[in-house]
Write a protein that binds this DNA or RNA. Structure first.
Length: 280
DNA sequence: CGGCAAACCTGCGAGC
DNA sequence: TGCTCGCAGGTTTGCC
């Protein structure tokens, strides 16, 4: 499910229930997600206060008052919901409950179990194996056309693959890469190294714009994504190309018979959607 | 280092 | 109705 906008939606939804709350119980009902859960997770968190909830790329970081940091990744199908009181009986994919002193239950659900919940410490978090190699967050000041161009320079791989690589820019996934390439009129097959100058500027602006629009829409709800209060995102209604193969390109005025409409191809094992006429 | 397929899981829709 | 197949928002790992 979750790319940057969905994770940011989750962060914003969880913050009111978690920030400044003390955890009174942590119920872990599964031994492992993507990796084994820290055996001392509950022990380390109970009685501890949540100071801040932040996001790094697609990772949620829960900063505790004693310096410990909970790293949460939602994988493909993870979501988190807040129950202010009386949470329902956990279902088979409801793996972890965090209970606050206000009586709220913050529940981690993940059918495919590609997600992760790990522990680290504020002093070492930047060096954590999963975080240390991440590229700039596309909404931060570290991300701009010059920086993106520099990171793409000399690369022969297709731009689609480079944007999916979290070391180049961190937070995009399949949907937002497709949509950003469409907005900047760049072919997903274009060699990364040729995205310089004006193209890098257009791509940077497109990525920022797509992400901002998606966050404003509460993310994309195709199957699993719901915000912590249970509401659905609606950015899927604004897709230009994702999942729209065979449909008319929203940017082309000419006959769909001539253009073939939106195409689908597979790159590095993932579906790419694009308009071959508009995107070069 | 680059690039790709496989692996980790469950669920859903399409087609037979 | 029920089976099989392909596909799904991610990321790591291992192989060439």
């Amino acid at each position: 499910m979750p790319e940057l906008p969905e994770v940011e939606t989750v962060r914003r939804g969880l913050a009111p229930a978690l920030e400044n709350a003390t955890l009174t119980a942590v119920q872990v009902r599964i031994p492992k997600l993507r990796w084994p859960l820290p055996p001392d997770l509950a022990e380390r968190l109970i009685g501890n206060r949540v100071e801040r909830l932040t996001r790094r790329a697609k990772y949620l970081l829960v900063h505790m008052s004693d310096g410990c940091v909970v790293i949460i990744h939602l994988g493909m199908s993870g979501h988190m919901t807040v129950w202010p009181e009386d949470a329902p009986t956990p279902g088979r994919h409801d793996h972890i409950d965090f209970v606050t002193d206000a009586g709220a239950v913050i529940r981690f659900t993940d059918p495919r179990r590609f997600g992760a919940v790990l522990l680290d410490h504020a002093d070492t978090i930047d060096d954590h194996k999963l975080l240390s190699k991440l590229g700039p967050d596309p909404l931060s000041n570290q991300f701009n056309a010059e920086e993106l161009a520099r990171r793409l320079k000399g690369r022969s791989s297709p731009i689609k693959a480079a944007l999916m690589d979290q070391r180049i820019v961190a937070g995009l996934g399949n949907i937002y890469v497709c949509e950003s390439l469409f907005r900047s009129a760049i072919s997903p097959k274009r060699k990364s190294g040729t995205v310089q100058g004006k193209r890098a500027e257009a791509l940077t602006a497109a990525i920022r714009g797509v992400l901002a629009d998606a966050i404003a829409a509460g993310g994309t709800s195709l199957r699993d994504h719901v915000s912590p209060d249970g509401t659905l995102g609606y950015f899927q209604h604004q897709f230009s190309v994702y999942g729209r193969q065979g449909e008319a390109c929203p940017g082309c005025t000419c006959d769909i018979e001539k253009t073939g409409g939106i195409q689908r191809l597979v790159q590095a094992g993932r579906s790419t959607f694009y308009c071959s006429r508009r995107q070069r």
